[in-house]
Design a protein around this nucleic acid. Structure first.
Lengths: 237, 237
DNA sequence: TAGGATTTGTGCGTATGTATT
DNA sequence: TAATACATACGCACAAATCCT
C-alpha cells in the first residue's frame, strides 16, 4: 500500500481520506485477486474490519459498482464481478487503441528518478523469475502499470486507461498460472526492458507502440486458452 | 425525458429504477444548463422534490461526483462543476481521437428506423433555425449525440464517449450564445446532414471522421472566444 | 477569537427484496 | 405456498466541518 498509494490523499478532509483509503484497499484486493470474481463482500464484515459503520462502506461499494468491479444485488449481496469473453475482447481492443495515444497526447518526459524506479522493478522481476509466485507477480505488474500511467500527460486518457486496466488485468492474472507463470514473467520482463530502453532514448511514442503490442499478445494467449479449455467445462472453483 | 430515456430501466428493482431516474434527471439538468456551473444542489431540496430521504439523493450525488459533474464539499454544499480551459483542451483532444474509433471498432449498421430518426432531427433543426432558442438547441444536440453513440458497438468506448460528452458539452453550450446561436445551429445542421449522408451510403468509418472534424472546429471556436473574452474578466454571473 | 447557523457525513433501527425450507 | 433467515435500501437523529457574524 505504501508504494501504490504514493500520497494521493494529502490535504483531504478526514472523511474523504478514509473513503479513499478504504476504496483503494478493496479495489486493490479485487485487482490482485485477493478477492476472487464471484466472491461476496459482506458490508458488515468490511465495516468491522475498517472500524466504521456500514454507511461509508456502502459508499465505497457503490463507487466500485460504477466501475464494474462489484455487482450489488438488493437482498442478496455484493459480489466481485467477472468479465465474460466478449466484454474482455472489447476492452482489450480499446486498450490497444488507447495505448498508442499514450505517446501522442502530451507524454510526460521521464526523469532519472523515474527511470531508476523502472530499473528497480526490472531487478525485482529477475528475483521473482527464480522463485515464481502469482501474488508477487500481480503486484509487480500493477506497479509497472502505474509507472506507465504516470507518463500520460492527458488526464482523461490517464483515468480511462487506469479504469480499463483495473477492470481486466485481474482476469488476465487469473489465467496466468495455467498459461505458465514462468513464461509470463519472462514475457513481462521483456516488455519492461523494451519500455525502459526507449524511455532512456527519449522516444516516448515508441512506449505506446510497445504497450500496444504486448496488450495484443497477452490477449491472444489468454483468449486462446479460454477457447481451448474454458468453454466446455467452466472451472468455477 | 421520454425520448432520452428510451427504456433503459426495464426489469430493475424499484430502488434501482428510482436511482437511475433521479440520476438521469439531475445529470441531464446539468448537461442542459438547467443547473449552471457553480450552482449549489441542496440535498434537502432534491430529497423533497423526488419525495425521498437524503440517503438515495446522496447516492446519486456521489455518482455524479465520480463523473466529475458535481463537487461535494463537507459542511459546505454540493456544487455543479465547471471545467477549466486546460482540462477542456485535454478532453477535446481525447474526444477527437476517440471519434475516429467509432467507425473502426465494430460500428453497428444503421437501420431504416435509425436513419428516419436522424431525418426527423434534421427537420427539427430547420424549425429551430427560424426561431433560435438555446435550451431547445441543447436538447437537439444531446439527442443527436445519443444517436451517434448508439452506433458504437464497442461498449467501453461507448461509455467513455458518453462520459466525456456529458462532461464538456455543457461548457461548449455555455459559450454558444456568445459565439452566435444562429451560426452554431447552421454549423450543427451541416454536421447532421453530412453524417446522415454517409450513414445512408453505409460508410460508417466516415461518420467518425466527420465527428472528429466537427469536434475540432467547435473546440477552436470556443477556445478562441475564451482567449479573446474570457481570460481578462471572467464573467461569473 | 468565539459562537451559532447551515450543510454534509455517520450510525443505527427498520423496511424491502431474495432465497430456501 | 407460507414462513423464516439474511442481506441490502432507506429514513432519521446526531456528529463533524465550514462559514459568517
Amino acid at each position: 500500500m505504501s508504494v501504490l498509494d504514493s500520497g494521493r490523499t494529502a490535504g483531504l478532509t478526514p472523511a474523504r481520506e478514509r473513503f479513499e483509503r478504504i476504496y483503494a484497499t478493496i479495489r486493490d484486493r479485487i485487482c490482485l485477486l485477493e478477492y476472487l470474481p464471484g466472491e461476496r463482500l459482506s458490508e458488515e464484515e468490511l465495516a468491522e474490519e475498517f472500524a466504521v459503520s456500514r454507511t461509508p462502506i456502502r459508499g465505497v461499494l457503490s463507487r466500485l459498482e460504477a466501475e464494474e468491479l462489484v455487482e450489488i444485488r438488493h437482498g442478496v449481496g455484493n459480489f466481485v464481478t467477472d468479465v465474460d469473453e466478449d466484454d474482455l475482447r472489447q476492452v482489450y481492443r480499446l486498450r490497444m487503441e488507447l495505448a498508442v495515444l499514450i505517446g501522442r497526447l502530451d507524454p510526460l518526459p521521464r526523469s532519472a528518478e523515474d527511470l531508476a524506479r523502472l530499473e528497480a522493478l526490472l531487478r525485482r522481476c529477475d528475483r521473482q523469475a527464480r522463485d515464481p509466485e502469482a501474488p508477487a507477480f500481480a503486484r509487480l505488474n500493477m506497479e509497472f502499470f502505474l509507472e506507465l500511467n504516470a507518463m500520460i500527460g492527458n488526464r482523461p486518457l490517464r483515468e480511462v486507461t487506469a479504469r480499463l486496466y483495473y477492470l481486466t488485468s485481474r482476469i488476465w492474472l487469473k489465467s496466468v498460472p495455467r498459461l505458465n507463470l514462468g513464461d509470463e514473467i519472462a514475457i513481462f520482463r521483456r516488455e519492461m526492458a523494451e519500455t525502459l530502453a526507449v524511455m532512456q532514448s527519449g522516444d516516448l511514442e515508441a512506449v505506446g507502440h510497445i504497450r500496444r503490442h504486448h496488450i495484443s499478445m497477452s490477449a491472444k494467449r489468454m483468449l486462446a486458452y479460454d477457447q481451448a479449455e474454458g468453454s466446455g467445462a467452466p472451472a468455477k472453483g
